[in-house]
């Protein structure tokens, strides 16, 4: 039983961390343009454009 007192908070903490990370990513606009992100990696940086 005592191991549960340790494991359950760990499980919840990891899940919670994932949730917080997802909220941050969404607020930061990480999911705004999924296709674009996949393609942008292919663009050569000629100069500093927008």
């Amino acid at each position: 039983m005592s191991v549960l007192a340790f494991l359950i908070p760990v499980a919840l903490g990891m899940g919670g961390a994932g949730l917080v990370l997802f909220f941050w990513a969404m607020r930061d606009g990480q999911f705004d343009d999924l296709d674009g992100a996949a393609h942008r990696i292919l663009i050569d940086d000629e100069d500093d454009v927008a």
């Binding site: 343009d33 296709d35 674009g36 393609h39 942008r40 990696i41 663009i43 927008a50």
Partner: peptide
């Protein structure tokens, strides 16, 4: 395609008065 993104963003920024152009490929 990636080429389109680069072409559009660079092409538009080259215009006078355009500060920033950002393509959203998904939309």
């Amino acid at each position: 395609c990636a080429g389109c993104i680069a072409k559009i963003e660079r092409g538009l920024v080259a215009l006078d008065g355009v500060g920033e152009a950002r393509v959203n490929l998904s939309a």
